[in-house]
Design a protein around this nucleic acid. Structure first.
Lengths: 217, 217, 217, 217
DNA sequence: TATGAATGAGTGTTCATTCAT
DNA sequence: GATGAATGAACACTCATTCAT
């Protein structure tokens, strides 16, 4: 499954013929943007961190904004990848994962693993989304729409089977996604220094979603 | 209940003897920080928006950072106010609200109302927390600890009564808080332009938390 | 007559409430632009020459281009001033200067005196005109049209009186203006280090124009 | 006569073994320098316009300044060519062109034709002369001195024959040259978009010079 | 010969902050 | 208390030029 990919792998997919210096720039930019925020990071800082001349950044990325885009676009694409790849859902639907629980479990583990591997990138994405119209557009188009569409089919099928309660489909999706991301944000962004028993927290989160969305007899 | 308070009320509480120009500066800063982010907002911009000279800002707030602090500190204090005010919890615990459901319902309605009234402020808080050590400290000290402490007592008492399931207390709190804020963020920050049936969403969210945390017979 | 005015006088007319630093900036910019050309002059250079901080320049002039405009606009206006002021031409037409010769003599002495006093400014104007659409527009609107209009009336009246030969009016104007400016450019821009007998050259130039444009019996 | 030569012809004369890419660079540089000025043109721009790599420019011309020199030197040499080629003046002096009028007519038509063919180059020359010591030196040495020397002989001979008036020789030359260039500059640099009746203007200019410099009986 | 990635000094401009008025 | 002119460091970005390939 694609959950093994880390930052560079996914950027390399998007941008071919990347040079060594370009790689260094991307890594430095991700670290800096993640630490201080896009607006508070200077290109000079990135250059120093990457060990290249400031001009080199602009040879590869016309503007600082372009650099941000080059970093986040692959993330968005990879974030939604499993949802648009047929195989993932065929497994979920047709084969062994045929209960809502197993679907949730698969989704949670898969995407949390992915987010964990790309913490910095993901932090940048959620920090910058409110301030960049184009990012918001990308997010809405890719994540909101595409993920929603696939999950809608699934959730509807589970609803039909009586496996989940009768609330608006988009609400169940929102509550599911919110619980997963809520854990991620608390864990890696708000309180990264706290002690976390990750396995237990994830299980608890899965159980919470299941209890929250499945009917009581 | 304290849910009626809006931006200025709560700032006025913190800062006495506020002048008219100072008020204008605060309002302008909140709007600007919320729209473009703290780092991307210039003091010149704030001055123009407030209709004062740039120097005037620095007469009242030694640095731009001080201005941010002056804006966010009252928010943090007011955000946690109901949790430390005895009355609120006496009502919850001793009087009519004696089930977990009614507690959740009270909390959700009360704090969502408050967040809605202070969207801009709250947006600034969550945007800037990751980048300012002192804000994070304030947040941890005030929100995380104080809210947690009070909720812990309550959740533990509900747990003792068998009203909620046996998962770590901090996990239940996280899941609760996450679901509430998750709605708020989706509603007001990520997809503010979408059509929302607020009443239904809130009810669904409450139900989700309840189902997620209460035991099945 | 207005021929006594020098650089600052004419800029002060255009821009009221000029500060001391602003004056220094203008003087430094004029010197630098004139010496090295607009594009080859850095704002840093101007700041140093003016003895102000670089930021100060941009407090008064939003862009480097604005600074150029602030310098040249008054020149253009003052250059054409005598042609649009009624008095100047009333003197020429009604009073003592009632021959073509005296008209030419008055024009030549008056404008050459003015150009000499504002050499640097004028050099900037002719150097930059080919590269700035707006300057060209200003020049065409003000100088070409307004000067032309007034001179046309006069030349036509001299033509009617048989004082000048029957060639297209605009050609006579061009040849006159070209001869005057030609002297100025050779004298002050192309070969400023050569020895010049100014009085004789000016008289020769006047005579050349007169011979060139008046009929032979 | 040499008046047929255009840009490349004259550059090719100066630089042997020119490669195809080099040609493209020269053409691109001339267009760019002429449009935006030397200082405001970047080598990157020239490279793009020429369809070569930026490094290629510096392989052929050590510096940007060298490129300018490579462009202007041939112009200067060719501009004065007819004045130093014996044949041209032998024709003028010994054969049919033995009046001042015919000399002027020949000069005007010949050099205006040449300027027209090399507008861009000539525009660069007059724009850059004030800012480059070496160009000014070249200009003075070649154009001012060599042209002056030849014209001096001629003008003196015409003066001796009583064909032109008794003013300092260098003044007559200045007035002649100024009138010719004045037309060229008005025509091609200042007001290129205006409608021009070229034939008439040139005739008028010739007549003006003749009238201006020949004695009245 | 030609390339284009890389450079680092330099560009015009903005910044938060100071201070005399 | 309020102003806004002044600052100079920092900003994103461009420049002419170099050099390994």
């Amino acid at each position: 499954m694609s959950s093994q990919e880390s930052i560079l792998d996914l950027i390399l997919k998007e941008e071919k013929n990347i040079t060594n210096k370009q790689k260094k720039i991307l890594i430095a930019a991700i670290e800096a943007f993640s630490d201080k925020g896009y607006a508070a990071t200077s290109t000079n800082e990135i250059a120093k961190k990457a060990g290249v001349a400031e001009g080199t950044i602009f040879r590869h990325y016309k503007t600082k904004k372009d650099l941000l885009t080059a970093i986040l676009t692959p993330l968005v694409h990879t974030l939604i990848a499993p949802f648009i790849v047929k195989d993932f859902f065929r497994k979920v639907l047709d084969l062994s994962y045929n209960t809502f629980e197993e679907f949730i479990r698969a989704i949670v583990y898969n995407r949390l693993e992915f987010l964990k591997k790309n913490q910095a990138l993901f932090k940048i994405l959620i920090q910058e989304i409110p301030f960049h119209e184009d990012l918001r557009e990308l997010f809405k188009e890719q994540i909101a729409k595409k993920i929603f569409k696939r999950m809608e089919e699934l959730v509807d099928s589970f609803k039909a089977k009586g496996e989940i309660i009768d609330i608006p489909t988009y609400s169940s999706i929102r509550l599911t996604v919110t619980s997963i991301f809520g854990y991620f944000i608390a864990r890696y962004i708000l309180l990264p220094e706290a002690k976390w028993n990750d396995e237990e927290e994830i299980e608890t989160t899965i159980q919470f979603i299941l209890y929250g969305l499945t009917p009581r007899k």
